[in-house]
Design a protein around this nucleic acid. Structure first.
Length: 473
RNA sequence: CGGGGUAUAGCGCAGUCUGGUCAGCGCGCCUGCUUUGGGAGCAGGAGGUCCCCGGUUCGAAUCCGGGUACCCCGACCA
């Protein structure tokens, strides 16, 4: 794991998650990777709906003029736009941008849908692909085209919009990341320089990867009235006056797949969190002679049926390779539980269960298999979370001075998060970034300090902001 | 967009300096037999625009010129 970047690429390829595409910066998501994405979609979509939102779909193409209506927004996205100028062999009167995100086209439409305070709130979400022309890409972490969901809501008051923004971060994103992906996250507010182009305030959940770098795993933005003003989203309030609405937007993407890989993986390969694992239990049959194969096959079929009936995602591997090959192969793919059945097991009416995370092996009586498998999957889910949290704690430091901060960021082998006071000045933030490559990932809601103020890690002046500095993906 | 590097079989590479048995190796793939509780063995086999264009030469993967693509480092990254 010395070269984390190399390890990451190798795992993505060997675990059969993705393939390279003929188009620069784009990727082909293969079935095993896409199955993980589908599990992510299920978990996130369920929570989005439980919090009162509905799905809809907006077009891929956005008139260029729309993007230009919000000054900061266009400034933020202009460099990475893909633009269509020809359609049907003819030059377009107005070029169409391939959506980098849909605030503008949705804002344009919401202006028509919102007339009265009785129309509010509007709580919609879409699952879509977006395109951002990136200079440097990495599978799942940053690709020119990626899949995501983007929620876009409209509210009557600032308080309501703020509450929505935070609810998504807490009840949808962080809840999903921690309970399903077994990834502990730090929730917090983005600084002015790190916030979404056009937002009033941005919030994010940050996770620590296996190399100590931070990954923004989900963001939620209170857009204030910026887009409402740009697109004229107004409503007649109960008091008879016309007011600009308050909007929010929020998203998680296929980047979460990269997070799963980088948080849980080890020298052997992936470790899929059981709750989202495309395959939770893989059955490897073992036999020598033909009559053994027949007996083993009967046992495997019966076990497979039972596990499936219990709601588990199971696959039996009848490929011609040797058992040893299959063990390694499924460990590389991160399947949480392996179940072996051979002639000896058939005779004893048992099976062998092996955990991917600890490789602990146990013999389980045929009748106890389902309950034992379930229990082990729960244990693995918890163990992955615990290990990730322990790692993050071990790699989280505090710094009083810039020298301490810089030293931490220079220590590659022990890279991690550094917590420190910050005066709030963007200049200090920029200087730290220029000198150490570390950025303020967020101003965490939960502070690991009892003090309410201190001195800025860079300039030494009075500081009220407790910040998390880290190198980021 | 700056600095460096690479391009030869599906993947990873050798060969290039010094032009001529250099179209090669490992893995993978196909066929057969033997195997199978931690990455099997043997035998046979398929697979190439040596990135592209042009030049030098009797002869170019190899030398020269131009182009393209990709990788690494930096800058950028809502």
């Amino acid at each position: 794991m010395d070269d984390f970047a190399q390890w990451y690429h190798a795992v993505v390829r060997k675990a059969d998650m993705a393939d390279e595409s003929p188009v620069r910066g784009c990727m082909i998501i293969k079935p095993y990777g896409y199955a993980l994405w589908e599990a992510i979609q299920r978990g996130v979509d369920e929570r989005i709906k439980l919090t009162g939102h509905e799905n809809l779909y907006f077009p891929l193409f956005i008139p260029m003029s729309f993007l230009q209506k919000e000054a900061q927004h266009v400034e933020g996205f202009a460099p990475e736009l893909a633009v269509v100028t020809v359609g049907g062999g003819e030059e377009l009167v107005e070029p169409l941008a391939v959506r980098p995100t849909s605030e503008t086209i949705i804002g344009h439409t919401y202006a028509k849908w919102v007339q009265s305070y009785r129309d509010l709130p509007l709580l919609y979400n879409q699952w879509a692909n977006v395109v951002r022309w990136e200079k440097r890409t990495r599978p799942f972490l940053r690709t020119s085209e990626f899949l995501w969901q983007e929620g876009h809501t409209v509210h009557r008051t600032e308080e309501e919009a703020e509450a929505e923004t935070l609810k998504i971060l807490d009840d949808v994103y962080a809840d999903f990341a921690e309970k399903e992906l077994a990834i502990p996250v730090i929730k917090g507010r983005k600084t002015e320089s790190e916030k979404f182009a056009g937002a009033l305030r941005s919030y994010s959940m940050e996770a620590m990867m296996g190399d100590g770098k931070a990954l923004q795993a989900g963001t939620s933005h209170n857009l204030g009235q910026n887009f409402a003003r740009a697109f004229d989203i107004q409503f007649l309030d109960a008091d008879g006056t016309r007011k600009f609405a308050w909007t929010t937007s929020w998203g998680v993407s296929t980047r979460l797949i990269g997070a799963v890989i980088m948080v849980h993986g080890d020298e052997t390969g992936l470790k899929m969190p059981p709750r989202v694992a495309p395959i939770q239990v893989v059955i490897v049959p073992i036999w020598r002679k033909d009559e053994e194969r027949a007996q083993v096959a009967a046992a495997v079929d019966a076990v497979e049926r039972d596990l499936r009936a219990a709601g588990l995602r199971v696959r039996s591997d009848w490929r011609e390779q040797t058992p040893g090959y299959k063990f390694n192969d499924w460990e590389l793919r991160g399947v949480p539980l392996r179940l072996e059945i051979g002639p000896k097991d058939v005779q004893k009416d048992q099976a062998v269960l092996v955990r991917r995370d600890t490789r602990a092996k146990e013999f389980v009586a045929r009748g106890d298999l389902v309950s034992r498998a379930r229990a082990l999957l729960d244990e693995i889910q918890q163990a992955l979370y615990d290990a990730a949290l322990a790692f993050r704690k071990q790699r989280t430091y505090q710094a009083q001075t810039f020298d301490e901060l810089a030293a931490r960021m220079a220590d590659r082998a022990n890279l991690g998060f550094v917590e420190a006071w910050w005066c709030g000045d963007a200049q200090c933030e920029a200087e730290v970034k220029a000198k150490t490559q570390a950025t303020i990932r967020c101003l965490p809601f939960e502070r690991s300090t009892g003090e309410s103020s201190g001195t800025c890690v860079y300039c030494g002046k009075d500081a009220q902001e407790w910040a998390i500095f880290a190198k980021a993906y």
